[in-house]
Amino acid sequence: MRCVLAGGVAFVLACAVGTADEPQKPREKPKYEYRQEHDPNGIGKFYLDREIAHVMGFQAAGWLERKERIKEEDPEKLIKALDLKEGMVVADVGAGSGYHTFMMAPRVGEKGKVIASDIQQEMLDIVTKKAKDKKLTNVEAVKGTTTDPKLPAGQVDLILLVDVYHEFEFPYEMTEKMVAALKPGGRLVFVEFRLEDDKVAIKLVHKMSERQVLKEAAVFPELEHTKTVGTLPWQHVVIFTKKGEKK
């Protein structure tokens, strides 16, 4: 609404109130596209010109625990970059076998919590057994869906996505739910194999460029890109912070 100074102070104030009462424009949801010709490792569904990859099944849980992962991904360096604090509530979305869940649990301590969210019950069963074996009480396994990781609204300090976002069948809906789960000042962390690096021996649809991550996160104005960590062997870590003052 445009206000013209033509009738005194009362008119100007009325304009100001009218502007404040106007409803906010709803966020525009990008459309999904389906193509018959596509990468055989993808599902033929595209989001912002990126093909979505097939989900890795629970049958490959052993691959997530491979010894080579230490050399290929340097997970200790990743966890250090997250700057976790005791008492934090963090979520490992697409947790799989809980590889990173159990690296984060000791760092947030007994007063904190790690929510391991996955859509495959078999993966969650592995996480639950590990937590019992390790006698950890700060790990919670949560069954999500393809559109909702089932995280508590406004209660999460950090959400970690390791090599999983590119497999989300509904990336818009999932990100919308994750943003809603974050506290003001909370962080959403994308860890993806670098598409820019031909030496990263991972199938193309299971890699993402930093530019593509930024493009997809830009759909959500609540998110501010605060840092990209490029020192891991095969992956980049793209970190976003939810706008708003911390309570």
Rank of each mutant, 00 (worst) to 15 (best):
P40D: 15
A141H: 08
A180K: 12
K243E: 03
G8Q: 11
T145Y: 05
Y172F: 12
D148R: 00
S117Q: 08
L124A: 07
F190L: 15
D83Y: 04
I159M: 00
I70S: 05
H166C: 08
S117I: 07
T226E: 01
G57A: 14
K177R: 00
K85E: 13
M174N: 01
P106D: 08
I115E: 03
G62C: 09
D125I: 14
E28S: 13
K246I: 08
K143S: 12
V205H: 11
E122I: 04
L136I: 07
D74I: 05
H166V: 08
K134P: 02
K45Q: 14
P233L: 00
A201L: 13
A6I: 03
Y165V: 15
H225M: 06
E140W: 01
I70A: 08
E51W: 15
Q212A: 15
S97I: 00
G62R: 09
L48F: 00
N138M: 03
K113T: 13
E72Y: 11
V55W: 15
D163P: 06
K177E: 01
K134F: 15
P30V: 05
G185V: 13
H100F: 14
M103N: 05
R35I: 11
A105P: 06
C3E: 05
A217W: 12
P30N: 06
K243M: 05
K183M: 12
R2M: 12
K243P: 04
E33T: 00
E76S: 14
V55P: 10
K132I: 05
S117E: 08
M56K: 13
F102G: 04
V213K: 02
C3Y: 06
P221Q: 01
I52E: 08
R2I: 14
L223K: 02
V12N: 03
E176M: 06
T226H: 02
E73Q: 10
L82M: 10
V12Y: 07
L161A: 07
I79V: 15
R107C: 14
D197V: 13
L151T: 00
D157M: 00
R66K: 04
L232R: 02
F46E: 03
K111E: 06
M1F: 05
R50G: 06
I115M: 07
A61N: 15
V9G: 01
M103I: 10
V89T: 09
W63R: 07
A153W: 03
L136E: 05
R194S: 14
G144L: 09
E222S: 00
E192W: 06
L136A: 06
P152G: 00
H236A: 09
P75F: 04
L5V: 13
A91V: 02
K135F: 11
P233E: 01
D133I: 06
K247A: 11
V127R: 09
W63Q: 08
